[in-house]
């Protein structure tokens, strides 16, 4: 029921700058672009590898430039932030039950990190790093 003249407030384009929570949300969303960007770098590496040793060596050399190192450092931070926020939100997307009780969100996150460490270990072992 309206008195006849309700006042409508517009949402401005800078709505997300007013609240640190929304800034973190926008950074989280923007971090997806870095996940995409780094996937393309990895694809580029595969392509260079398929072209032969000379192309791959040139690709590796290009990665040593200060710009490439700066970009990779930024990408690492953003992908890390993306991963942390992704794992933190995952429990809200599911209700898991164990023996008739809801599994606590903190337990789910702990298992996620344990799985992450395990997968990293397997990959590292497969490539002979460990």
């Amino acid at each position: 029921m309206s008195a006849g003249k309700p006042y409508h407030r517009e949402v401005t384009r800078t709505w997300w700058l007013r609240n640190p929570f929304f800034v973190r949300y926008m950074v989280r969303e923007a971090s997806s672009l870095f996940v995409l960007g780094y996937s393309l770098v990895l694809l580029r590496a595969l392509w260079a590898l398929s072209e032969g040793p000379a192309t791959y060596a040139a690709f590796l050399a290009a990665l040593g430039s200060p710009w490439a190192i700066a970009l990779h450092t930024l990408a690492l931070l953003m992908v890390g932030y993306h991963a942390v926020t992704f794992l933190a939100m995952a429990p809200q997307t599911m209700r898991l039950e164990w023996r008739g009780r809801k599994v606590a969100n903190t337990t789910i996150v702990a298992v996620e990190y344990a799985a992450l460490v395990a997968v990293c270990g397997i990959v590292a072992a497969a490539f002979g790093v460990l």
């Binding site: 929570f21 949300y25 939100m89 809200q92 599911m94 209700r95």
Partner: peptide, 21 residues
């Protein structure tokens, strides 16, 4: 999945969880 709905909820309903489930 901004998730702020669940942060401000005075009853800890967690609407973001409901929607994403």
């Amino acid at each position: 999945f901004v998730g702020y709905c669940s942060t401000v909820c005075p009853q800890a309903v967690d609407p973001a969880a409901a929607i994403n489930q």
